[in-house]
Design a binder for these strands. Structure first.
Length: 310
DNA sequence: AACGAGGATTTGT
DNA sequence: ACAAATCCTCGTT
């Protein structure tokens, strides 16, 4: 386990990312990675960002999170071109680096948590902790990140209690580092959720938006399908809203706003540098007779519809 | 010029 | 075997 701590919103287009990792020896944990892997609507993930403990390197400032109830489609899109950040080759480089960093960071975090669990003899899921487990985790975290001792603050608290507490609760109980503890707990929660999601499959449905997760490429060994890939992009509007977005999420109607860009992303994912929209759209059309994607009732250019919306 | 439909063939796993 | 990739012709916007 390293000496990492910290959070930063929106890794997109943060040039220093790769350099930072190299120069500083992988110091920062970019929580936005988790966010990008899941839907942006996961309410309990939303607050993870706020604490930025111990950032060793220059990192982008946390972006205020949108309020609940706002349309996800309207959430801010960070776009390299819009920020004047090198279109063309460099932009693509960054984009690819970003994806590499994402998977790398997530892998590292999961590994570290696993190590900690073995060492402390606790489960990865904070919800299952008894009060003893909680104390172990607290001591471990405090020691690892050189936090002031919270002492007996959380005596007799179970993991479930802890998980139910807001960041504000943490801050009140431990003014010195409550926010940091809360952030770290959130990481564990994220990891546990992710693990469960990957192993369980489809046995539970916790509400409308969960189904697409089955199709997430991050934990199915099989090669990703095009329709899955498109869904992935659609569920990360803050990353890809500029090139593909929902017109009607409920009906599964979406529009490809930048066909060339989407094709490039697809080509990169499949390691097909010669991919273009001509070929991508041909693959989409193959879905017609398979009943996966169709043209909407009122056919519009670059607009398609999932036959089975989530 | 860019998109759309769909046939034919090849490719990668 | 299968989904995609590739290549193609022809029609539409």
């Amino acid at each position: 386990m390293g000496h990492r701590a910290g959070a930063a919103w929106e890794m997109e287009d943060t040039k220093p990312c790769m350099e930072a990792l190299e120069h500083c020896g992988f110091p920062g944990l970019y929580l936005s990675c988790f966010d990008m892997l899941f839907t942006e609507d996961s309410a309990w993930l939303v607050k993870v960002s706020e604490a930025s403990p111990g950032l060793a390197c220059a990192m982008p400032v946390p972006v205020p999170r949108m309020a609940h109830g706002e349309e996800p489609e309207q959430c801010p899109v960070i776009d390299s071109q819009a920020l004047g950040l090198s279109p063309g080759l460099e932009g693509q480089e960054e984009e690819r680096s970003l994806e590499q960093v994402q998977s790398m960071v997530v892998g590292e975090v999961l590994k570290d948590i696993e190590t900690a669990c073995k060492l402390l003899n606790i489960t990865p899921d904070p919800m299952e902790w008894n009060s003893g487990n909680v104390q172990k985790w607290l001591l471990w975290t405090e020691h690892l990140y050189r936090l002031p001792q919270a002492g007996k603050t959380f005596q007799e608290q179970t993991g479930k209690d802890l998980c139910a507490m807001s960041e504000e609760d943490f801050r009140q109980r431990v003014p010195q580092c409550g926010d940091t503890l809360h952030a770290h707990l959130d990481i564990w929660k994220s990891a546990a959720w992710m693990k469960e999601r990957c192993s369980v499959g489809d046995s539970k449905i916790t509400g409308g938006e969960e189904l697409w997760l089955e199709a997430d490429s991050s934990c199915s060994g099989q090669p990703i399908h095009l329709w899955q890939f498109l869904r992935e992009l659609l569920f990360k509007p803050h990353n890809y809203g500029r090139c593909i977005r929902w017109l009607n999420k409920e009906k599964g109607i979406f529009k490809i706003e930048d066909s060339a860009h989407v094709a490039r992303l697809w080509g990169r994912r499949k390691n097909r540098p010669a991919m273009n929209y001509d070929k991508l759209s041909r693959s989409i059309r193959q879905y017609y007779k398979k009943g996966i994607i169709r043209k909407p009732d009122v056919s519009q250019r670059l607009v398609y519809q999932f036959v089975h919306p989530v």
